[in-house]
Amino acid sequence: MKTFKAARWALFPAAAVGLALYSLWVIYPIIASAVTSLTNASPLKTSTDFVGLANYAQMQTDARLHRSFTFTLIVVIVSTIGSNVIGLAFALLLNGPGRSYKVMRMLAFIPQVLSGVVVAFIWRSILNQGGLLNTWLINLGVMDQAIPWIGTPNLATFSVCVVVTWVNTAFATVVYTASLQSVPEELVDAAIVDGAGWLSRFWNVTWPLIAPGTTISITLSLITSLKLYDVLAVLTGGGPANQTNSVAYYLIQVAFTGNRFGYGSAIGILLLAITAVTSFVSTGLLRRREAKL
């Protein structure tokens, strides 16, 4: 026991450095943000005043913030449902034997390896007014006028949903493929012997057994699309007319371009609260489902 305690103190200096760095660059900035959110701080002002909850009250009348919430909500819902449905179907299709399936599974993950900046540039070159999709469709004679895929609010929202779903599908596919490979073959065979059809096998055997994969895939899709930033910076720049601002994108605009530290911090604290609640509720609900099975 004595050696054990001594051992604990021997490594303490290293752990102290780790804890200090983490506290300094994760915890302190959040506390500082929470404090700043109660002030009207700005580099353009000589003095900073305490304003209480005024920044939070201001959110109620900020139409651009409301739009950014609606937009983020649309992207989160569409991309989470889309990427999990498509990813699961894709994984079921790719969960075959042999080399060709292995290569296909390998290719399906590549969108996750690329940076959001590269992903968005690829899609911008495809979706631009004078981009590849329009040129291709016009060359084919399908249509004679370019479609503004990222030029109108509704089409741009749709396009962002497509891109985010595409990236998250790559993740979902790999998680579901790995989960499917852990389903014991004997169970599936037993169901076949019992005369269970394809749908019944999936619903009664496979689906319950891949529950942990579902938890990971859904929760991470929710969190990554909640903090959506990189794709927007390149693909739409938040436009047209600020209609594709995510909350994270709007917050950076307010704090860094608009120099309104106080209000920007308040939005940040709200985003953090939403992310925390979402991930707790999501893992809580999905884990409970895992436990039930």
Binding site: V26, I30, A32
Partner: peptide, 19 residues
């Protein structure tokens, strides 16, 4: 430490830069 895994990076960026 788990808390840090979920914080959106945009939230603390302003104080981080001041620090």
């Amino acid at each position: 430490f788990a808390f840090g895994l979920m914080v959106p990076p945009q939230v603390g960026l302003q104080p981080t830069i001041r620090l």
